[in-house]
């Protein structure tokens, strides 16, 4: 399996606060990885650095050997943890936007998923419920044939049924040769789909192991091991 993502001594400080400290990480293709950690552990900062939305204080991050830039942005499909689409646009317009800018975007696939959900392409985003907005965002991101999907808290703040739908959408649509990084603290909901997990706390990587290894070596599920590691 080829190496897709690499972080070397990656550090990010905001003033006096260190959000990430000397993170070394390598992610291979074809894996679904859970980026797990409590609130404020540095998950979103790491994701933003991978996507070039923040610049590292020191160290470097590369996707297939390239630093974040035009080349990596055409390979990485990113779902932020907030509403990032212009609410005045219609669903049809955002689908068109993704199709215009991403060569790997499949509008037919997006249309199919939207139809299945009963979301009209002529709806303005501001008229959609929170759950439907998140579904539209996920559909856009998963309709790309990207090499790396980076999903920041895709199942936070939605009801269990929507959560299941989101997980099914991820599984049904990602290219098996690609990798998916899913940041969350709702581990039990996604544990069954993960190949690897990364535990992060106070900006440091505590653990990067396969789910199998965790189960074998600790005799417990990832969720139980997470609770053990991050016990107050």
């Amino acid at each position: 399996m080829a190496e897709l993502l690499r972080c070397e001594k990656l550090t990010k400080r905001f003033g006096n606060v260190t959000a990430l400290q000397d993170v070394d990480l390598a992610v291979e293709s074809g894996r679904i990885i859970g980026l797990l950690g409590p609130n404020g552990s540095g998950k979103t900062t790491l994701i933003k650095l991978i996507n070039g939305l923040l610049t590292p204080t020191s160290g470097r991050v590369t996707v297939e050997g390239d630093a974040p830039g035009v080349v990596t942005k055409s390979k990485v499909s990113y779902l932020p943890d907030n509403n990032y689409l212009d609410a005045r646009m219609t669903v049809r317009q955002v689908v068109e936007l993704f199709g215009d800018f991403y060569a790997d975007f499949d509008p037919a696939r997006a249309g199919e998923m939207l139809t299945r959900l009963g979301i009209s392409p002529d709806c303005r985003l501001k008229t959609l419920s929170k759950g439907n907005k998140e579904k539209v965002s996920l559909i856009l991101v998963m309709s790309r044939r990207a090499k790396l999907y980076v999903l920041d808290e895709p199942i936070a703040g939605v009801d269990p049924a929507t959560r299941d739908h989101i997980i099914a959408t991820i599984l049904d649509n990602y290219d098996p040769s690609a990798s998916v990084i899913i940041s969350t603290h709702l581990i039990s909901d996604i544990e069954q789909i993960l190949d690897d997990v990364i535990f992060i706390q106070n900006g440091r990587i505590l653990l990067h192991q396969s789910v199998e290894q965790i189960r074998e070596s600790h005799g417990m599920s990832v969720d139980e091991w997470f609770r053990e590691v991050f016990k107050w």
Partner: peptide, 11 residues
Amino acid sequence: AEGYLSFTLPV
């Protein structure tokens, strides 16, 4: 928040 999309476009 719109910058999350703008700056992840390949431009």
